[in-house]
Design a protein around this nucleic acid. Sequence first.
DNA 1: CGGGGAAGATTACACCTGTAATCGACAGGG
DNA 2: CCCTGTCGATTACAGGTGTAATCTTCCCCG
Lengths: 121, 121
Amino acid sequence: MERIAEGEYAVMEVLWDEAPLTAADVAARVPEDRGWSLATVKTMLSRLLAKGVLTHEEDGRRYLYRPAIRREDYVAEESGRLIDRMFGGRVTPLVAQLAARDRLTPADIAEIEKLLKELKS
Amino acid sequence: MERIAEGEYAVMEVLWDEAPLTAADVAARVPEDRGWSLATVKTMLSRLLAKGVLTHEEDGRRYLYRPAIRREDYVAEESGRLIDRMFGGRVTPLVAQLAARDRLTPADIAEIEKLLKELKS
DNA sequence: CGGGGAAGATTACACCTGTAATCGACAGGG
DNA sequence: CCCTGTCGATTACAGGTGTAATCTTCCCCG
């Protein structure tokens, strides 16, 4: 699966959330703080099409864009890459790391424990 | 903290493992499969210096390089970035995701449970 | 029916990254 | 004392990315 750049990912998020959309619709839904012009969004859409992670169907003179890959799949791949690179492919050190950095609230801990318990059954 | 590119990260790994080292030493320790020439490694070192994530001390006509940032800190930052981007800043969905993707072996689960238990005390 | 606006396509351009080659200085061996 | 090898510094260059502007085509409003 083709790599998706950081900015492009923001566009994918929009379409994972709602699809199909026109370029203008996507632009309208991209987070404000990106400060992107419509032209920029169109560039992103073209590149994502070229990468094969979006498809488009014609709607008169416009395109309707929709994701060609599933969000969970992409997220899984990216997470895997990070874990491979920074934690030698092992998940436990990641969790340990997060714990040590106080990224885990008591609520998180409870939730994860529940999750793991279900996994074992 | 400056962003470290994928290739540059491989150089950092070498120096986190052993420092200080000369450019030639670093080149000798970079994973074979990168297939990098000494020149390439030197470029990486310069860029990392420019980014402020390495320091160098003179040793005659050569430099001895050593990390200027701690590995755990950088790893923490990168992990945080991924979690923010792909999981809305929440850790639990990450773990859920890993679980669903069978990235968690029973041994992992046991280990994580132990880790969490310690956290609570 | 003509002009303006909107759609996608094409082009632009600077910065980052991977991957070096080349350059100028200098130290050490013969 | 000179040559050669080695060092860091500088330069190179293509592909990816952020961020658009411009071009071409065509539809709709007046």
